[in-house]
Design a protein around this nucleic acid. Sequence first.
DNA 1: CTTAGCACTCAAGATGAGAGAGTGCTAAAT
DNA 2: ATTTAGCACTCTCTCATCTTGAGTGCTAAG
Lengths: 373, 373
Amino acid sequence: MATDEAPKDEAGPTRRGPGRPRKNEEGGSGSDLTERQREILRLVIQEFVSTAAPVSSDVIVNKYRLPYSPATVRNELAALEGAGYITHPHTSAGRIPSDLGYRYFVEHLMERPGGLTALEQHNIQHQFYQIQLELNEWLRLAASVTARTSHNAALVSTPRTYDSRLKYMQLISVQERWALLVLVSQDGTIREQMITLDEAKTQDDLTTISNRLNTLLTNLNWKQMETRTKDWPEDMVRTVALRLVETLKMLDQNQAAQIYRDGLVNILSQPEFSDIERVRQVVSVIESGQALTHIIPEVLSSDGNTVQVIIGGDNRFDDLRLLSVVLARYGIDGQVAGVVGIVGPTRMEYGRSISTVQYISNLLSGLMTERRG
Amino acid sequence: MATDEAPKDEAGPTRRGPGRPRKNEEGGSGSDLTERQREILRLVIQEFVSTAAPVSSDVIVNKYRLPYSPATVRNELAALEGAGYITHPHTSAGRIPSDLGYRYFVEHLMERPGGLTALEQHNIQHQFYQIQLELNEWLRLAASVTARTSHNAALVSTPRTYDSRLKYMQLISVQERWALLVLVSQDGTIREQMITLDEAKTQDDLTTISNRLNTLLTNLNWKQMETRTKDWPEDMVRTVALRLVETLKMLDQNQAAQIYRDGLVNILSQPEFSDIERVRQVVSVIESGQALTHIIPEVLSSDGNTVQVIIGGDNRFDDLRLLSVVLARYGIDGQVAGVVGIVGPTRMEYGRSISTVQYISNLLSGLMTERRG
DNA sequence: CTTAGCACTCAAGATGAGAGAGTGCTAAAT
DNA sequence: ATTTAGCACTCTCTCATCTTGAGTGCTAAG
């Protein structure tokens, strides 16, 4: 699905809002822009995204062979600036898009988001079917592929589940008083826990306990398990059951979620990060980012499958002022959900980023569905 | 063990080589330096490490109240430069240590490596006993603690084993034709593998197979398993056994080894990385480092428990020219082994780095021994 | 062997001129 | 009423020049 090579000749064709008036300027974020202004804004962004240099009226006119003179374009640029969509580093510089401008672009101006070519899609799929059917390997690969495809940094979170149920558990004797609890949930997630025992147990003892628990608790989620075990006697069986409850709960709440990251280097080679101070900030956001751990649960609990785009932190995340984040959910509705994301400078190819996270998240969802059957 | 507060007043007391002649200069790496030269070299390094600025003769004399005049020191500096231990960014600058100088320092001049204070040790231990008894959590924590303690980037590799033996395995039905193979080795490592089945099997079928394999193969390593299963009939049982062999082999060869990293930000705040080009290089070395994956197996297969210090790549790793790596092995002799490392600029507090990796690796080794009993 | 004295070198910062890019405005053209 | 040519104006960037100060290296005296 989704071919490439968006037609660049026609104006901004897709998602154009309905009847738009001809008011010329002011109005803040009111989005009433002339058709021509929209076109020019699109070009400014397109040009700036690819060159990283402020865009002048001349460049727009000449490079894109517009039927207006630079002067006309200048007037329009002034209008766009008045409306807050672009800015001016200084008097004699060209224009650069503001966060608001990018937002408008993403919401109204983006041509059909530049999808991945068939070849790219094929190569990516190939890689996924290359490796063993292991969730974590998939996620790691997803991060790496996303980074490479988008030329930005990528992140993939391990999924949370919504209703984990016990499929199988086993206690394994490690030492006289320590046992390893291995838990497999219905969706194939494995968790291990070390348990200290009050009294020494042999492997046979442990197997007996495991068997009993498997018979009693299979296919229950943590809540059911909790009520079921409430009035069990205070013995080893119950202790283990409580650990099971605990662990399933953790899975459902996305505790212990890991984040796979990759491609940090990609965004450091962007020209906006020629300033060390920024680099440091970016690295720290990505390495140990508070912001990201706030955003991910938000995306997970949002509804709809739309890709979310957070531009320059959207005034909510100070650490992200210089960055944009494009996120998609993957998983199986109502059962498991994780996040695939791209982090890069606000000057980013939003179209491509969006199609990339879309493609990868769909791929992951597909793989997971397939695997669970 | 290992207290702190190395006495800084006395000259370089520890590890002093035996009778050393009074030859004054030349001789390349021949290590015959005057006592005074050694002292001065030590001061140059100490000063440079803490200030990051080229060290002048004046500073040395005044700051450390040496009983010589700056001119004398200048002569000695010239000698040290001739011998290759220090250099000159340009004529009118002070001296900076060369990689050779650092090497000499680490090998002969370092005062008792500045150990961690009792408080630090206590805090670190506390953190480890805080968390669940999970190997991977320990390793992640080790990376984070090492980074924070050393103020550099840290890495911790998941351990390879030398003689993994099967403790317990179980097949779990996921779909009609897919099963999850969970393998627990004697040291408590867990691996999961998805297996596709030629024909549909119920969970009961799978359990029967598992039980048989457990009886037949428990406590075998992969080689034994291979010979044992050689002439089994070509059935499902054998297929699974082969996967077991494969997996144990992987464990022994440190395939699928992960590396936990942390603290990248720390080294970016060092003044030597005010140049973007360097930052990029460093980030790419640490994020996807070829060099590191070469070094780690080397350290693992080296003998002795000494901490290894690689300074500026030691002419073997080009990518590491600007960096030094301090590595220690952890694990249990002849059974499991992983690596704890610190990566930072060549201008690094080697003493502290060495004690840190030593301490952390001992701690990990202890935890592992304890856990396995 | 040590050290005072001094010339010499070089980086780093300040200053200023010149060029070029690009705007914003005004007034004419359509 | 919109478009556009023309032009003054602003600001950054680059380059060259100058100055300053740090720190050396050498020489000759202690």
